[in-house]
């Protein structure tokens, strides 16, 4: 059990370092050419795709890094089932009397 926990901890640490390195490289790439990139991304029109794609890439790398970072620091979610609440009974569809065919002689 303890060995398993150790392996898990090691895996998380490796992932944190890996995503940390990717995130650092991404920030370094943008901020080393900050002015040119800022101007290019603010050209408008179809260039709008550039800032949007950038924030998606950053949120993937940096998001994964920070998620693993909190785990390394021992801050993880407590998994507990949310208590079921009393809700109103689902309304029933209005019952209409079935149409009958009347046969008269």
């Amino acid at each position: 059990m303890a060995a398993k926990t150790e392996i898990r901890k090691k895996k998380i640490l490796i992932r944190t370092l890996m995503y940390g390195a990717i995130t650092t490289a991404l920030y370094a790439a943008v901020f080393s050419h900050a002015s040119s990139i800022t101007e290019l991304f603010a050209k408008g029109g179809f260039y709008a795709a550039l800032p949007i794609a950038t924030v998606f890439i950053f949120s993937f790398a940096h998001g994964a890094f920070s998620s693993n970072l909190w785990s390394v620091l021992g801050i993880e979610a407590i998994t507990k089932q949310a208590a079921k609440r009393k809700t109103a009974p689902a309304p029933r569809p209005i019952q209409k009397p079935r149409a009958r065919l009347r046969m008269s002689a």
């Binding site: 901020f31 990139i37 603010a42 408008g44 709008a48 949120s59 940096h62």
Partner: peptide, 17 residues
């Protein structure tokens, strides 16, 4: 907003960080 060229990507990335 991005189509109007109003996004300052430096500010966005700092806040996002």
């Amino acid at each position: 907003w991005a189509m109007h060229g109003m996004v300052d990507i430096r500010l966005t990335l700092i806040i996002l960080a």
